[in-house]
Amino acid sequence: MKKTIALLTLAAALAAPMAAQAHRAWLAPTATTLSGSDAWVGFDAGMSNQVFNPDHAAMRLNGLAITAPDGSAVQPENAMQGRYRSTFDAHLTQNGTYKIANVMGGVMASYKLNGEQKRWRGAAAEYPAGLPEGATDVQATRTASRIETFVTLNNPTDTVFKTTGEGLELVPVTHPNDLVVGEPATFKLLNNGQPASGLEVTVARGGLRYRDNPEESTVTTGADGAFTVTWPEAGMYWLNASVRTEGQGETLGSNASYVAAMEVLP
């Protein structure tokens, strides 16, 4: 019994760095649908209670990647980390859809060394070599977090929707820059490349400060990992899902989360 409690405490301790995500992480564009020969889009990224309202902590953008329609990487410009939000711009020069994603992952482990409880964090490649000699009672979890959004200059394209097979990923059936009030939109979630079935997806609309009802909803993915949302109102929406599996012995546990910001137009 005592052991169970200890384990639970341990699990809580392990989750602590992720507990920051009890605050919601978001990466929001200033515009998603653009026209002309080129365009600039600004992005804010933060962790907060109310989605898109910067009031808690700026997001660290160590894993930021902007992918152009042709697959090339775009350098973020005018990057700045404020108290409550990180911000940067992207200059869109190609026609089509861009993906802006902050992808982080690694291994979190807890172990005992000389009877003392310790924790370790590092890249997946450094595990388990990164643990000190003589570490016992090792419990490790592989983490994968993907926070992304999409913007389109002129006609939408789907070249940036290629998945990597790592962590939770979204496969759009409906284009994420083609969302309109009242029309159903379908997306699929994959976990390590496999359909993520039975997953609860939270759908929350921004602008909560100016209304009383959170108007949040959840939808569960089907056997093929697909879920459908019919947008009740225009606005910037936050979609989130996460999946967690416990480790067993040598097998690492996993903790994967996915966040997208999608704009729905009237």
């Binding site: 649908t33 653009l34 026209s35 002309g36 020969s37 365009a39 002129n154 006609n155 939408p156 083609d178 309109v180 137009l265 009237p266």
Partner: peptide, 21 residues
């Protein structure tokens, strides 16, 4: 302020239904 085409997207319905193509 920019190129006239920058604001074509503000004709939202037309833009989505074919203007952007």
């Amino acid at each position: 302020e920019g190129d006239g085409k920058d604001w074509l997207k503000d004709l939202r319905t037309w833009w989505r239904k074919g203007g952007r193509a």
